[in-house]
Amino acid sequence: MRPVGVLVFPGSNCEHDVVRALGDLGAPAELVWHAQTDLSGYDGLVLPGGFAHGDYLRPGALARFSPVMGAVAEAAAQGRPVLGICNGFQILTEAGLLPGALRQNTGLTFISRPVTVRVASSQSVLTRTTAVGTRLVIPINHFSGAYTCDDATYARLVEGGQVVLTYEDNPNGSRGDIAGIASAAGNVVGLMPHPERAMSSLLGSADGRGLLQSFVESTVLAR
C-alpha cells in the first residue's frame, strides 16, 4: 500500500492529527512539504486544517500559489482522491479545484465545537460507504466556514449529488446548510468539519472513522 500524502503549508496545524488518524486505520501517511512538486508516489492526498500562509489576504488565497498545488491539480485530474479539511477545503476552492468559496461565519465568531452533520450523497471518496441520511457528530473549528456560491453552481451541486455533507443545525450561515462538497467525479472532497478529530468515542466521537476509512479504501481503488 502506497502512502497518503498529507500536505504541510507554512501555518498548517492539523497535519499530525491526520497522519495519526490514517495510521489508526492502518493507512501509511507521510507529511509532504508544500515546496514539493512531485506527488506521484502518493495514492491519495490530504490538505489538512490550519492557517496556511497565515491565512493572509483570504484563507487559501496564498496557499493556492504554493509549488505543490500544480501536482495537486494533476492528481485531482487523474482521479486520485484529494481531501481538503477545513483550511484545506478553503485552499481547494481558492485553487478552483472545487466550486464556490468559504466566507466569514455569519455570526462573526470563531466556532469550535462538535456539530451534527448528515450525509447527503454517497457519490464521493469520503462518503462512498456511508448511507445517505446518516447523522455524524464531528467537530468544527473555523472562522471562515460559510459556504457560498452562485445560484447556477448551487443547482449543479445539488442535482449532481455533489453536496456530500450538510449541517443539521447550520452554525455558520452556509448556503443550503452545506458542510462539505465533492467534485463532479467525486474524487476531490472538501469539508469544514474535522473527521480526524472524531476518531474515538472516548474523546467525544468516533464518527470520523467511517469517512476516513472510505477515503483510505478509495485511494487503493484509484490505483
Partner: peptide
C-alpha cells in the same frame, strides 16, 4: 468588498 448580495457580517455589525 464583498459582492452585492453576499452577506457582509462585518458591515452589518
Amino acid at each position: 468588498t464583498l459582492r452585492e448580495g453576499i452577506a457582509d457580517p462585518a458591515g452589518a455589525t
